[in-house]
Structures are given as C-alpha cells and as structure tokens.
Design a protein around this nucleic acid. Structure first.
Lengths: 341, 341
DNA sequence: TTGTAAGCGTTATCAC
DNA sequence: GTGATAACGCTTACAA
C-alpha cells in the first residue's frame, strides 16, 4: 500500500539497512549516499511505519494518559485541558504520542491501564491525580511501568515520578502578602480536609503566621465540604459574624467567589484572594487576586520528567516543583477596595 | 521480554496460528483446544502485542484527535473535555484507542495530522471544529483518510463524516417557546456572523417568527463581536434602549449572562435564555434557561460514526444530528420573574 | 480442525 | 561505509 523502506532502498540503490541508518542519523554514512537516500525519500514521500518501528524497537513512543472521571465538578475547571495541552506539546516536541482514556471510577481506571501496559501500547503512563491508596500506582509499580503523577504520591510508591506545586509555600506566600499589607486576622477558607491540597495550604497558612509572630487562632480556620461557589457562600456568614477577620485567604477561587458574593450582598469589604487564577475570578468586579498554579506548565514538566526517564536521562530528579504565581488584582488592593481607585 | 503467542502455543501444545484463532473466536476450533489455549493464556498472563498486531493487520485500531488551540476562550468551556469523554468511552467500547494532539494554529494542525496519517499511527481522524476552507479536511480528503468532524463541513468535502446539532431547529424551538408564552418582540443576541452557529441560529430565529406569523424586524437582531460575557454586557444597553424587546434569545449562555447582569443593574426584568447549558448559568439567580447541545453525546456519535465506517458498516449515514434539550429554568419563568414564585 | 510458513515494515547484528 | 539477514510478535493463506 504505502511506500516502505524497501522502496526507498531500491530507488536509492542501497540496502534497507542503509536507509534506516540515514533516518537515524548514523554518522558513518557517506555524505553522498545520505543525499541519495534523502532524495529517494523525498521523491517517494516515504514515512516510516509506526507499528513496524514499535515492533522492531520494542518501544511504542507513546504515553498513556488516564483522565479520572471525577465525582466533583472538576470537568468544568480548565485544569485538565490545560495540563493536557502542556503534556501534548512537550510530548510532540520529543517525538512521543499520547493516548488518553476516560475512566468511570478507579476500578475501571486500573483495567484500562492494564490494557495499555500489557499490550505494550504505551511506554509510560501519566496520572492526572494522586489518590490515597492509589490502585493505579500500585499496579504500575508492580508492573514496573514508568509513570508520572500530577500531585504528590504517597511515599511508598518508590518509582513514582511526580510534579506538583509547593502548596505549603504558595499559601505561605499569600498569607505573608496579607501580613505585609498590615492584616493580622486572616481567615483561612479551605476545601475538604481529605484533599492534600487543603492540608498543605492550611499548613502554609499556619507556617506563615508563626514565622511572622502572629498567634495562631483556629477560630479563623474554615473548611468547606466542597470547592464550589456555593460552599464558599454557605460558610461566609459564619466567617463574617464570628471570626472578626480582616482578610480572607481562600484555597480556591470558587470558594473565594462565593464568599465575595456574600460580602457584596452584605456590603462588607474585606481583602480576599483565592487559588487557580480562574477566568471568572479575573473578570468579576473586584477582580480577584489569585494564585496561579500553572496547570499547563505542570503538564509540560510531567511530560519532560517521564520522557526523560524513558530516554534514560538518569541524572534527572524524580520530581519537579512548579512555581505558583500570585496574580495581584483589585480584591486585595486597599485603594480599590476603599474606592480611591 | 513479555509472554508471546509462541509461549502460549508451546504451553498449550498447539501452533501459534491456533492460538490466534482462539483469540479471534474462529469457530472451527474444537471446544477442547479452545479450552486448553485459554488455560495457557490465563496461566501465562498473555496479552497480544499491539504493535505486532497492527503491523500484521495493517490497522492500528487507533483514532487521531486534533484539538484546536483556539484563539478564543474555548478552553474554559467544558465542551472539549465533554466531547472527548464521549469519544473516549465509545472508542473503548469498540476496542479503539484515541491519540490526541494540540495544535497551535491550523498550520501546525495539518503537519501534526500528516504525521498521524503518513506513519499509519491512526486509522481515522476526529476534528473538533469545522472551519471554513479547512486545511485539515482538504488534506484528509486528499489522503483518502476516514475522518469525522464535530460541526457541519463544507459540502465540497465529499467524504466527511460529521455530527452536529440542528442549530436552526434548536433556536427555532427556543423562539417558539417564547412565542407560546405570549412574547412577540423577541430579540436575537448572537455572536460573530462568520460562525456558522450564529448564522444557523439566526436563521432558526427568523424561521420561527415567520412560521408564527410575526413580522420580521431586524432592529431586534444583535450580533456581538465575541461570545464572552462582556460582549453580551456591552450590547445590553443598545438592546434595552432601542429595541423594545419583550424577550431575549441569546445564542450563548455567556452572552445571555452578560446581558442579564446588565439588566439586573438596571432593574430591568425580561425573560432570557441562552445556549450551552453552562454551569454558571445553572447556578446564578435567576437560573438561566438554556439549550443543552449535549457535547458528550456529540463525541459519542462522532466515534460511532467513524468506527462504524472503519469497520465497513456500510449502511451508515454520513452524519448524525444530536438533539438539543431545552433546559427550562427561572430566567424564562413568568412567575419567578414577577416575584410570585 | 489444525499446522506450516510467508509476510507485515523496521531495526540491529554481523560480516565484508 | 554498506549489505545481508535475522529478529520483533502476530495474522492469514494454503496445506494437510
């Protein structure tokens, strides 16, 4: 059907192996034959067959991506698609393809992974979330299949590569930012405690207070049952009535937005900031200060790490920390909030 | 390295070809040998190598998915990820994998496609958008590579399979819904005219008026330069001042939401509805009536169509129309709007 | 009903 | 430097 390496060889008057060498830039091929082979490839429009190549090399140059069918509304957040973009672009750059698969729960996720790994369709796997007691990681460890996780894996997964933000530090910085602005009673508004992001960010909050000599007051700490706007809204009353807060550090933009809309209804004005640099936060008034976790860069780094590992670049560390960026906007701008803008 | 068909054959005391036959359910293998082979496969943990299979069969059982790097904010909308979910689940069901690739513009898109197609990594291609004068489709047509498009392709692409909503009809129904509620001066709020969705929905709007004997009045038609909330907001003043509208049919939820927030600021109350059944529309007050275009189902149908075609199910039509669903909510509920709720 | 053997298109190991 | 040639693991006529 399509043109093969033999066709090229014939046309160029060389052996197939020589063509293969030219393709792979083998240095001991004379300039002259190289040129001849290139010509032939060009004329015939040759492109090596991927399946044959995989079979011969024992590598597929393909990565498998599991996309969790999140119970939450994670789908409406652009995190996944952004991370995928980073993954895809980096993979392309390094000559890898990415196969994706949606699961409907951890159970199916593992069985999909099995197909990927056992049939050798993928050289390595990318997991978009790190669960506690993760079955996928357990399987991949057992199979000795290289993988990278977005999020920090449990320490027992010895071969896990991973990328993550430093959530402790990110929240530390946000709180330090408030402290620098003279705030002292900063409320923490987080999601459910069984998410490691929540715990890490709470820790960063406490570390920051401590480091700046502000006494810890747990009546300023609020954990919502979810990450939605309504969750923030629902807690807002409690926060405003009891806590005497003078600033709000939320662990998520939607929590912050829910809180903000409550404050707007009540005419309360407090500096507030969130996480994830969401579109909505950036268009609403006052525009919401937010910590950008750089999802696309997380994807890029994940691909870098996994591919580097597959290519045997051994000196690579097993993880990569992606910096967060504090996007300062009106919601923490004293001038704006006081109407002097 | 891993266990091959030969290992199974040896263990079961048969020829590799027999194992292959068992795998493919060839009917003329005795129950007895079938059982023996199954045993052997189970014990050894055999799983056929995908590359070898592809090579031998001349098919990869893989689909290529191009994700356009949209200039617009299409990324923050869940459309893509939803459609991908439908695609993925249906493909899995039928034994296909999906490879995806992000492009940064049409130029690169074509070159990525070329890699996919020429190296035989994919049996067919899925395009997430239909552009005017689409270079990807032109290439796929030329290469005679099966493909499916989400959105209606230009008629010159003779081999295009496609799935789409009936946008004319969807808007027709929405307008009819307003008419039935006694509205007569219904404003149309659409996006840029060079999008076929805009044109189709405008057509549906006009058809509906005509069919119900309402005279056409183009001073009620407004086209925004984009699909964002601010675009709706920006046009809102004009719509309210000049047009004397008694209802707003918007071609997008975000346009509708922009308009709605303007109305709220002014204390104006008009029934309004949008398209795409966005999360935000469904949580805001009044909750926004919206036409759900069923992105996941669009994906499912696209996969069905393409795979059906690849499998030679010849009686299949070349396209599939996905029904839209009118999600009636408070924003078009007279009782709610008048405060009698 | 089952076995034999020739591909499928590359790569890699020898020779020369 | 380059050419034979044997894998790679599976499928599929063609025999038996």
């Amino acid at each position: 059907m399509s043109v093969t390496i033999k066709d090229v060889a014939r046309k160029a008057g060389v052996a197939p192996s020589t063509v293969s060498r030219v393709i792979h830039g083998n240095p001991k091929i004379s300039e002259e034959t190289q040129e001849r082979v290139r010509q032939a490839m060009g004329v015939l429009g040759y492109h090596p067959n991927a399946a044959a190549r995989s079979l011969a090399r024992g590598r597929s140059y393909t990565l498998g991506l599991m996309i969790p069918n999140s119970e939450d509304d994670l789908f409406v957040k652009p995190f996944f698609i952004m991370a995928m973009r980073g993954l895809s672009i980096e993979a392309q750059r390094r000559g890898y393809n990415i196969m994706f698969s949606f699961s409907s729960g951890e159970e199916e996720e593992v069985s999909l992974l099995k197909r990927f790994v056992r049939t050798n369709v993928v050289d390595g796997v990318i997991l978009m979330t790190s669960r506690r007691d993760d079955k996928c990681m357990a399987f991949l460890e057992e199979k000795n299949c290289p993988y990278v996780v977005i999020g920090r894996p449990e320490s027992r997964f010895l071969h896990a590569l991973w990328v993550d933000n430093d959530n402790v530090r990110a929240m530390y910085n946000l709180v330090a930012y408030f402290l620098k602005a003279g705030r002292r009673r900063i409320a923490f508004l987080g999601g459910p405690a069984d998410f490691s992001v929540t715990r890490d960010r709470l820790r960063g909050y406490r570390d920051a207070l401590k480091a700046h000599g502000v006494e810890r007051d747990d009546s300023l700490v609020f954990l919502a049952p979810g990450f939605q706007e309504r969750d923030g809204y629902a807690l807002a009353g409690k926060i405003l009535s009891g806590a005497m807060a003078d600033a709000i550090a939320a662990a998520d933009d939607f929590l912050a937005l829910g809180m903000a809309s409550y404050m707007e209804e009540r005419g309360t004005i407090l500096p507030i900031a969130g996480f994830n640099n969401t579109m909505k936060g950036s268009v609403i008034r006052p525009r919401l200060t937010s910590v950008d976790i750089q999802p696309e860069l997380l994807g890029t780094r994940a691909a870098e790490l996994l591919i580097g590992h597959l290519e045997g670049e051994d000196s690579l560390p097993p993880y990569s920390i992606v910096e967060t960026i504090l996007m300062e906007r009106e919601s923490t701008d004293p001038d704006f909030l006081s109407g002097n803008s």
